[in-house]
Every structure is written in C-alpha cells, then in structure tokens.
Design a protein around this nucleic acid. Structure first.
Lengths: 194, 194
DNA sequence: CTCCATCTACCTATCAGTCGGTAGGCTGCA
DNA sequence: TGCAGCCTACCGACTGATAGGTAGATGGAG
C-alpha cells in the first residue's frame, strides 16, 4: 500500500470529476494534465484514448454502485429503507459537492454524440440500475412497505427518472438542497407510512 | 411572408437541434454551416458569438413555451388536464423526434461549463417553469383534480424533475416510448380519478 | 450609392493523439 | 557481484484537424 494514489487512479478521479461537472465534450486531456501535474502525453500512456478513460470511469462507478447495493441489501432487509438509503447516498454526494451529478446521467444526456463503446457502457449502467430498483420495489410491495400503483418495472423507471431529474433541478437552481426536497416528496408518495 | 425561412431562422433551428442532441459543448459553427449550406463566418454575421446563438435559442424556446402555456390556460380550465397536456406535448416531441430533449434541460446539465450570460438565460427558464407549475398545482388542489401530499411548490419541483428525468431515461434506453410510460406513472400518482 | 448578406482568406488557440526518447526499477544470468 | 535486457512511467516536440472568431472584398437589391 503506497501513501499517494497511483497516477492512473489520479487521472481516473479527475476524469470523473470533470465528466460530472462539464460532461464528456466539456473537458480535455490538458485539463487533467494541469490538475494532477503531469504532461498530456503521459495520460495517453494510461488511457490510450479519451473514450477509454471515460469507459474506465463508468465501469468503476458501476462497480462501486454494485458493491454499495450489495452491502445495503445485507445491512437493511426492508426495501423502503433501502430506497431511502439510495436517495440519502445521493443527497450526501450532492450536498458536500463530492459528486454533484451522476456520471452516467451526464453521459446519458450526451449519448447521441458519444463514441459507440462509451455509449454501450453508459446504457449498461441504466439497465443494471432499473433491474435492481425493480427487484427492490417488487420486494417492497411484498413486504407492504411501499405502495405501487403500477407494475414494479414501471415504478422503478419512474423512481429512477425522478432521482436523476432531481439532480438536474439541483444543478439548474444551484441549490443542492433542492435534491433533498424533491426526493422527499417522491419518497412520501411511494413509501407507505407505518 | 417569404417562402423560405430567413438565414437567421435556419441557423436558430439548426442550433436548437444540435443543442438538443449534442449539447452546447458538442457542436460547432462548422456543423451549422454544413447543415444549412453557408460558410462558417456568415453565421457570425447573425450571431456574433456561439453563446449569443445559444442564448437566442433559449429565449425563443421560452417565448414558445410561454405562448403555449397561455393558449393552454384559455382552452382548458382544468388544472389536471393542463398537466396532462404539458406531458402530452413532450410525448409528441420525443416520439416524432422533432425535439428529443428539452434545450434548457440539456444546458442545465452542462451549466457549470457554460458562459455566464447563457447560464443566466437557462436558469430563467427553470424559474419560469416552476412558477407556472406551482400556480397550476395550487389551482388543481383547489379544483380537487390533483392530489398533493406536499406544498404546491414542492410538488411542482418534483413534477418538473420527473418530466426531465423521463426525458433522460428515454434517451438512455433509446426508447422514446419510455417517456410516455414514466409520465403516465407520474400522472397516475398526482391526478385524482373522477 | 449605399447597405447588407455573404463570401474568401486568414488568425490564434486548442483538440486528441503520435513520435522518439529518457530515467530508473526489476529480472535473470554469468 | 555486475551487467544486459526489458519494463513502466514519463517527457518535449510535434501532427493534422478543428475550435471560435476576424478582416476585408464582392455582389446584388433598393
């Protein structure tokens, strides 16, 4: 274990930050080079093409989310609480500005202009996320802790959309707190009182 | 009235199309020049800077929406029906690919990297839209056609977020129909049955 | 003659990416 | 022990393409 992060990891971190704030078309290798104090060609040594870096960022995000989801399922058997925890996770990220936007959501908006292989990775995230949410809502309906007016799959899509829309609103108004208000409104419609 | 659109209008139209599909950082004056068959510097004659063009696109969109909203209020006094009509408007746009994404939503995602004057115009759209939706939901609650669990302002934010999130989902999955499914789920939660 | 839209020609800055090369660490072998 | 051979990480200098933007000439319409 080394004290400082590896160069590849630093590039990955800065790449994630830039994609979240400016989007794929809004940053360059020069930005990353300046930020971490190396020269531009050195980045190509670690990530041959810009799309390779973006794909690595997306895949890393997916791995982190998958791990979080698994951890969450073990720690909290109640589906509605898992739903809350998912929203709370994004709340924290947006409030402390560590992740003011979901990487995949940002890239989804830019999808029509992205390289094909990157687009595939982005679509993969959405497929995985809706699958998980669908399972979660199905479980919640069985447990009686969430109330659905539509099929679990349709409600999962609507829930995910609302979360990502809330991120957009928070950014549009420059008010991170807006995310919290919106998701609370959302949850108060879906989660059954006990 | 002339048979063909003015060059400025053609530039505006192509600019709107490009912002919707690729975002502000995803297109150039060269793209527009190619699309409408003029040289690049001719665009500068009509819109001095790229940000001026984008601002014009946003302002035009806001004017169109304002006119539509006014027309809608006259034609349909029921708030829940106006809400449905608003969703139906976007459904049509996304289904026929004439406007697969809201210009302001796309720009909102890119906000941190936009020129200041453009950012102001974008934020203006969101302020106007939430104000209208808040009024509409207040009216709906009074009429008894919509059911709110939170304040009209909070519900308006949540509704708007859900609509924009639905656009993102439709794009992420490459399925325009997804927008319809999601907004129907949304409306079924808000609009009271009679 | 004037004005306006458009043009050609050009600018500087930056883009992603390539090239040849170097510094230094590790490995295996004599 | 010493050294050859290879490796990773990084560099300066560069490429062709493209970015947004400018200057000044041209040509047609009122």
């Amino acid at each position: 274990m080394q004290a400082t992060r590896s160069t590849a990891d630093q590039i990955l971190d800065e790449g994630r930050r830039l994609i979240m704030t400016r989007g794929y078309n809004g940053f360059s290798y020069a930005d990353i080079a300046d930020a971490i104090g190396i020269r531009k060609p050195s980045i190509h040594h670690h990530f041959a093409a810009k799309s390779d870096l973006a794909i690595a960022v997306v895949e890393q995000s997916r791995a982190i989310i998958a791990a979080q989801v698994e951890l969450l399922a073990e720690a909290e058997p109640d589906a509605s609480e898992q739903l809350r925890a998912y929203a709370a996770y994004w709340e924290r990220c947006i409030a402390d500005d560590s992740a003011p936007f979901c990487v995949a959501a940002m890239l989804a908006a830019e999808l029509p202009s992205l390289p094909d292989d990157l687009a595939v990775a982005v679509r993969g995230h959405f497929a995985t996320l809706t699958k998980w949410l669908t399972r979660l809502l199905t479980l919640g309906a069985r447990q009686g802790s969430v109330s659905l007016v539509r099929s679990p799959a349709e409600e999962a899509d609507a829930f995910m959309s609302a979360i990502y829309g809330a991120m957009l609103s928070a950014r549009a108004f420059g008010e991170p707190a807006r995310f919290t208000t919106i998701t609370e409104t959302l949850l108060s419609r879906v989660v059954r009182l006990r």
